[in-house]
């Protein structure tokens, strides 16, 4: 089999080689930077990553995860794999263990046994400042928002960048951009308690996404919002997802689940009861 155009073949080979090299480079960078990347660089890296690495990368992996609270078993042998860039719902009846599961992924709760791998890093092995660096890569929208009532919207959102020690001009710019993204630019000097529930929700989301996290986790983000607001919030999550962030949402809002053909994991009594 003789190639028609040896020069073209050579060129192609060269390109493939370059691609492999770039992928390897990106992988190395990703490994090194998982915990120390500057926020501003991360978007850039992810962009390149999408271009060059074809196969999906496992973002969250749970192996035989158990969690006891005293005698009661909140999580019972959970095995789960969520790839980078996925949009996943976790649902199930109240007390099924959704919140517990999300908190484990966030490193807020330690498993009784089993392993959690986030982007290849085992949470059982990290602690202290490494955990803090992990959290900078995971945005968490809490069920009760956890906003600081005595700080303005702007301060609440920029707080997530303050902790990274980024320069102030960068923080200001990025906070403005994020507030514009969630449509709250005009409320930046208000205090959380002066906002409606939906607006508070959006502040919480803004704070969660400002660090351009690898993973965005939301616990019951549409808890008590009307359908219109629910749609707005979901659009926001889709927008974040479209930029490459892995999104995991816990909910028991049936409407939400009906809408798309998203992957949905059913939890019941701390077990994975099914998947769609």
């Amino acid at each position: 089999m003789i190639p028609e155009d040896p020069l073209a073949t050579l060129f192609q080979c060269g390109n493939t080689f370059l691609d492999v090299l770039r992928t390897a480079q990106v992988d190395a960078a990703r490994f090194r930077n998982m915990f120390q990347l500057r926020v501003s660089e991360r978007g850039y890296e992810r962009l390149h990553n999408k271009e060059f690495s074809k196969q999906a990368i496992c973002m969250i992996q749970l192996f035989h995860l158990y969690k006891n609270f005293g005698p009661s078993l909140a999580l019972n042998d959970i095995n789960l794999k969520i790839d980078e860039g996925e949009f996943v719902f976790i649902t199930g009846p109240s007390g099924a263990g959704k919140t517990t599961l999300l908190r484990m992924i966030f490193g807020e709760e330690r498993p009784t046994s089993g392993n959690i791998l986030i982007n290849g890093v085992n949470l059982n092995r990290i602690k202290g400042s490494k955990l803090a660096l992990l959290r900078r890569n995971i945005g968490f929208v809490f069920q009760d928002f956890k906003l600081l009532p005595k700080k303005t919207v702007f301060e609440n959102v920029s707080l997530a960048l303050e902790v990274t020690g980024e320069p102030y001009p960068f923080i200001r710019k990025k906070t403005h951009r994020t507030l514009r993204l969630v449509g709250l630019d005009h409320k930046k000097i208000s205090y959380p308690l002066q906002l409606s529930g939906g607006e508070q929700q959006r502040v919480a989301i803004a704070r969660a996404i400002i660090q351009s996290p690898l993973i965005l986790i939301a616990d019951e983000p549409t808890g008590n919002l009307d359908p219109d607001l629910t749609r707005d919030i979901m659009d926001l999550f889709r927008c974040v997802h479209s930029k490459g962030t892995t999104v995991v949402i816990a909910t028991h809002n049936r409407e939400l689940l009906k809408e798309g053909a998203q992957r949905t994991i059913f939890l019941n009594h701390g077990r994975v009861a099914g998947e769609k």
Partner: peptide, 14 residues
Amino acid sequence: EIEILKLVGATDWF
């Protein structure tokens, strides 16, 4: 505030 700072990724020393 301390709790939230920790949740958004502040190191202990920070």
